[in-house]
Amino acid sequence: MTLEELVRKTLAVRPGLPITDDDGPGTIDGWDSVGHIKLVAAIESAYRVKLRPNDVIRIGKLSDIKRILKEKGAASV
């Protein structure tokens, strides 16, 4: 599953709505406080990584997650 697919599934994004690397809490419906925690948990589970506090506070948009996952050596982001 790609990161975009994971975000769609976790946050129940409407089908057909495009998601880009620049999207984040301000542009994706459902990416609120609770959605954010769900997303962190889903990322950790799907990519078998542990997001540390310093990682989590850097997440402002999709590209930040991709960068963090690459730093952690996660495959196929």
Binding site: P25, W31, D32, S33, H36, I37, P53, V56, I57, I59
Partner: peptide, 11 residues
């Protein structure tokens, strides 16, 4: 602050 959306915002 907008909830716990960005914990960085709280910090």
């Amino acid at each position: 602050v907008r909830g716990l959306l960005q914990p960085a915002d709280i910090l």
